[in-house]
Design a protein around this nucleic acid. Structure first.
Lengths: 258, 258
DNA sequence: CCATCTTTGTGCACGCGTTCACAAAGACAT
DNA sequence: ATGTCTTTGTGAACGCGTGCACAAAGATGG
């Protein structure tokens, strides 16, 4: 997954392990589906299958939230939906700003999954003056100059960065200075932030590279005999302009306007 | 971050831990930047800072690849770029298909970071007949009917799913049947695949929910006294139509055409 | 009211990943 | 050549996360 925490080595926040927190949205999605089908209760086995985890893990995860199940029966779907929503903080409204309205930013702005989970796109921000005022997903784009004011006026604490890599750190700094304490970063850069600010990273390029690694391993499982294990006289010369040479490569998170 | 492996509990492929593999692209990016600035060598300390990890971890990671450093000096940038590229399988060409050319699919098709890492968009596929033939990012969209043929003709082994959730599993099954063995899934669903197929997941909604959790915890750090620790008579009634009620929520990965 | 059967909640062990801390290796100056 | 200084590579300890396996809890039927 294109995931990646930063900071806080593994602070088990109020007793709930990070790994469990990361799975709660998964459970919530499966439970919501059951709820829509008016299923009253579900066993750990069934829910685990729906969420793609094993049942022991699911039960342990739920045990961190409290004893919400009934032995011999299972879990009350509606009740669990409520408890998980509350635990994740989805019962309140989270205004979000998206900075960088290129191809990706626009796609994110149109994302329907925002509103249904308590996230509200409070503003779209872009550095291009030509974009200003132009509506994207029904929301007029505002200029970067007003970033601080927008953050403060709307009480925004979550920011999404979808700018080119070069602008990301600067945007990040301004967001943080204006009061944002959680950032979802789509730009292919490592952001540095002060303590107390959470950053999560989504990086398409990294995901593909990880897949390529496994793909290569699968392909070369029987081909490889005694290939490249030792650094014995590797082709050091033929490497220089092997992967570079084609301009500023991953400079944009997922394509800019054009 | 929006990451998430599936299958293979933690198979340390040929001795390289999964966690290390996930960081190699990060190192590669930092090294490429150094290479473009013509920096000849770099110490573990410097490179670690650039990649946002600590130096001990970086050194251990590199130790799985072999002894490529020089004590007292550091690592040869160009050489390391080559070694990591090779290890990740980026020295070869990876044809990729993107299925589901909505807002997100189009953004991905335009993503510049593809080509620069050995990934080539071999085809764009969509179920909408109206899209067929229409060029996106310079590539004509093809219809889902030809999916199998496209996969086989191009020798595609990596597929990207950017369809609505409802179509994802079906598309996945067809991709796998046609020979795809690595899938990057943007649809908010759990995909089930046979052994030997790798799936990585990117899920915006989940990332935001995780951020919301931490955000809530930060906000309620001093507010909370003895809040919701015990399941004592929780408001079970007032929960039913609290988060549902607004249609099929996260049905699309990151917005459809409109 | 008791027996049986289902399913939860969790104690325990194991393995992966991270970090510390240091010895070995080499560059560089004298 | 010898010594000093820098930086790597890694042994060892620790902590988190996972999964097994089972006891406790409660529903259900007689």
């Amino acid at each position: 997954m294109a995931t990646g925490r930063t900071h806080r080595p593994a602070t088990r926040s109020r007793g709930i392990p990070e790994a469990t927190v990361a799975r709660l949205p998964l459970y919530l999605r499966a439970l919501t589906a059951l709820s829509e089908r008016s299923v009253p209760t579900v066993s750990s086995e069934e829910l685990a299958a729906a969420a793609g985890v094993n049942s022991a893990k699911l039960r342990k995860d739920f045990s961190y939230l409290g004893s919400y199940g009934t032995r011999g029966v299972g879990y009350d779907v509606e009740y669990l939906v409520y408890q998980i929503s509350r635990e994740l903080g989805l019962t309140q409204d989270w205004p979000v700003v998206i900075v960088g309205i290129g191809n990706l930013g626009a796609a994110l702005a149109n994302y329907g999954g925002f509103a249904s989970r308590g996230f509200r796109v409070a503003a779209l921000i872009d550095a291009d003056p030509a974009m200003a005022g132009k509506p994207v997903a029904g929301i007029p784009v505002q200029h970067t100059d007003d970033l601080e004011k927008i953050i403060e006026d709307n009480g925004v604490s979550i920011g999404v960065i979808a700018t080119p890599a070069g602008a990301a750190q600067q945007v990040c700094d301004r967001l943080v200075a204006a009061g944002v304490t959680s950032i979802l970063n789509f730009a292919p850069t490592v952001l540095s932030v002060p303590d107390g600010v959470d950053v999560r990273k989504v990086d398409l390029s990294i995901e593909l590279q990880i897949l390529a690694f496994h793909e290569q391993r699968k392909a070369g499982e029987e081909t490889a005999a005694g290939d490249g294990a030792l650094p014995t006289a590797a082709p050091r010369g033929a490497t220089a302009d092997d992967s570079a040479d084609q301009g500023p490569d991953g400079d944009v998170p997922a394509v800019m306007p054009a």
